[in-house]
Design a binder for these strands. Structure first.
Lengths: 152, 152
DNA sequence: TTGGATGCAAAAGTTTTGCACGGTT
DNA sequence: AACCGTGCAAAACTTTTGCATCCAA
């Protein structure tokens, strides 16, 4: 049985016209394995934890590059000024963000495909995509915090 | 006929337990009249244009305060690290963002109310709200730029 | 070999904070 | 008068950039 879970990041990079460097492979690995969307500085720290020497500016430049090639995606959540990154599995996903513990859960289903088509027709925009993130309190945090009304 | 278009920001502030200062009234005015979501620094510059002396840190602190009281809402868009603010009309709105000229159009209808209810049932989250922003190219920009595939 | 990738240092851009003073209630 | 709001300056935090050097193709 062939493993379907391994990404060959080296080929992945090359087929996108990028040089295959260890740093890029490491960064892709970290993002791909992260259970949560992750910020540049978190990636930098994770590399240090793994004993990899890298400069923070290289992390930023690498993220730019990977984003340009559509290998990763960006995300902003409320109350965090940093840009978060995710591995792009080419699935159309959305996020359920806990306002208490900040945990981010990926939602696979998208209820918006038809809506988008209609909007394109009405506005004459060329729709490129959308962001849809839902905010709330997870079962654990519901006990500790009472939502006093949505600010989202 | 009574004008429905005037907000009494002074009373608005007081009823939220805030002192009614000229700066706060001015900032609310600027945000309310802005056709686009607006960043802290843009508000600061607009005040200078109007001959109002204010410190940028006061703008930030005021925005924090107004956000805490639900008088304004926050928004982040792709490719802009700043936080943008909007007047909270207590309507449930979404945004159509042009990737070319960065124009932001407010969308009134929300197609997601039922979806949210179902999600709450399935996940046992207390849903507070959601963000839904659509990216594309407006009719004018469609001529000048070809969307090479969504990154959104 | 050559152009792209990286380290380093510095700067730019955004947001936050401590403290003293001033204004609203 | 009391407390909250504000200015000022400094710092914190995130991200970008110029340039010299290094490395993958």
């Amino acid at each position: 049985m062939i493993s379907m879970n391994k990404y060959d990041f080296s080929d992945n990079l090359k087929s996108n016209g990028l040089k295959s460097t260890q740093h890029r492979i490491d960064i892709l690995n970290i993002i791909e394995k992260s259970s949560q969307p992750i910020a540049a500085d978190q990636i930098f720290q994770e590399m240090q934890k793994r004993g990899i020497t890298i400069n923070l500016s290289t992390v930023y430049r690498t993220l730019d590059t990977l984003y340009d090639k559509n290998l990763i995606t960006k995300l902003n959540i409320d109350g965090d000024n940093r840009t978060l990154f995710e591995f792009n599995r080419m699935l159309h996903t959305h996020h359920l963000v806990c306002l208490g513990c900040k945990k981010i859960t990926v939602i696979g289903r998208c209820p918006l495909i038809d809506y988008e088509k209609n909007l394109a027709k009405e506005t004459n925009y060329a729709i490129a995509g959308h962001k849809f993130d839902i905010y709330g309190y997870c079962p654990t945090c519901r006990q500790n915090s009472q939502a006093k009304g949505s600010k989202v």
